[in-house]
Design a protein around this nucleic acid. Structure first.
Lengths: 240, 240
DNA sequence: CGGAGGCTTGAGCCCTTTCAATGTCTGTGG
DNA sequence: CCACAGACATTGAAAGGGCTCAAGCCTCCG
């Protein structure tokens, strides 16, 4: 299985999106990177380990979640190939309980110390990473509004819209269809619903002709309709 | 009315918390700052204005919220004196619809251009701001878990615990009591509930002896009990 | 004194959950 | 090739937590 992207491609994309200089790019390319092939369900990082490193996805999907005392789980972010996964881990203790792979995939990691060394002499790179953290925060706040104030159909529709846009941005869509490798239970943990209700919501979305599903593939048949239902505006993703 | 803190005190606190050098601190102190006295309800920043600046609270409370198409509001963050308010606004479009004062207060602002100029030559300062953005993201994700997976009592209790800790950190508590200048409708918008239900929840918290309220003052009578109900762990605030 | 915003309370409803069972798919081993 | 197990999806019925609607009250302030 070849990775969706290479380490070099990842850095080049970061450089392009943030207008970094050639010198900056070369500094990034010189960073020692550790690659790991992980299976579905494997932990990308454990909260008990203080492994201060910054990692990103070369292939596969991952999620970060918080566990509550009563056993409930809240997935707070989902990561697609080309995303940073543990960007904020260069700082103190992680703020989530688990980061796991949704699918088999490859994770690349840079030790925090090495990264800090480069950042100290490359302010533009640090700005790029800071900006990425700001985008992560922006996504969190959008999810907050979705979970806090939207009904179940709108929440699920919003999640689907977000993934459609994010996956298109990294070329992981076939026309209007894309792969969303999450079980309904995981979708429930991401939207603050129950698996049973996610099932019913997906049923409703299918019956109203907005989407079609086949295994874990989502086909959006009525993008304007789905956007309207979700009250979706992609600005918060910080892309264009 | 004198401000709770001064601009100089704000920068000094930032420097202390991030182990910045004397040179860094002096660079911060040399930044041109615009101070504004705002009344309750006044807009700190408007989403339509591309006023790229970074602002922080010298006194008073503020909140940031998103508005949904159907008129619903979700408050995504509340800011206390000493907090940055529009830190991520140094980047692109703001990710919230409104930022308003909860009380009269003073806001200090630094133009993004001036800030960027300093950051380019002071990597440690940029790291400090980046770290603050990471903490903001951490708070978002904690709220996400609270709203997504906790019941109403636990959500409200969690919010009260958070404010108790944050206000104690800036010396704005009297013993176990503190001022939380939010109406029940605003608490509802922050917790994803309705004002009516927040009222009932507060009633229950009072009747079980966990808290007492007087106007907008909250007295926590049973801190361990409230923490247990909220499943609260202050680690996500990135303080100690 | 009157008005406005905020707080409180009651009653009924509804969206979502809970509980429980059945169906489907996939990989595995006999 | 089939039996089996396990994970996931689906469906029904009933319960419940929070919402909606509505009214009354309190307090501050002009």
């Amino acid at each position: 299985m070849s990775d969706a992207i290479s380490t070099e491609g990842f850095w080049a994309s970061l450089a392009a999106k943030n207008a970094l200089s050639q010198d900056d790019l070369e500094a990034l390319l010189s960073l020692p990177v550790r690659r790991r092939n992980l299976g579905a369900g494997a932990a990308v990082a454990r909260s008990n380990l203080p492994a201060k490193s910054c990692s990103f996805l070369l292939s596969g999907f991952a999620y970060a979640s918080k566990l509550l005392r009563d056993g409930a789980r809240q997935i707070v972010s989902v990561h697609v190939p080309g995303d940073f996964v543990t960007l904020s881990h260069v700082f103190e203790a992680p703020n989530v309980d688990e980061i796991r792979m949704l699918t088999p995939g490859t994770v690349a990691s840079v030790a925090a110390a090495a990264l800090h060394h480069v950042l100290a002499s490359h302010p533009s790179i640090q700005t790029a990473l800071w900006r990425q953290t700001a985008i992560d925060a922006s996504i969190f706040s959008e999810w907050l509004a979705a979970i806090g104030r939207r009904d179940a159909q709108s929440r699920v529709a919003h999640l689907l819209c977000e993934f459609a846009v994010r996956l298109r941005a990294v070329g992981l869509t076939n026309g209007s269809a894309f792969d969303l490798p999450m079980t309904q239970a995981q979708l429930a943990d991401a939207t603050g619903l129950t698996a049973v209700h996610v099932n019913r919501v997906l049923n409703a979305l299918r019956q109203t002709g907005l989407v079609a599903t086949d295994k874990r593939t989502i086909a959006i048949n009525d993008w304007p309709g789905l956007v309207a239902l979700a009250d979706f505006d992609s600005a918060y993703l910080g892309m264009a």
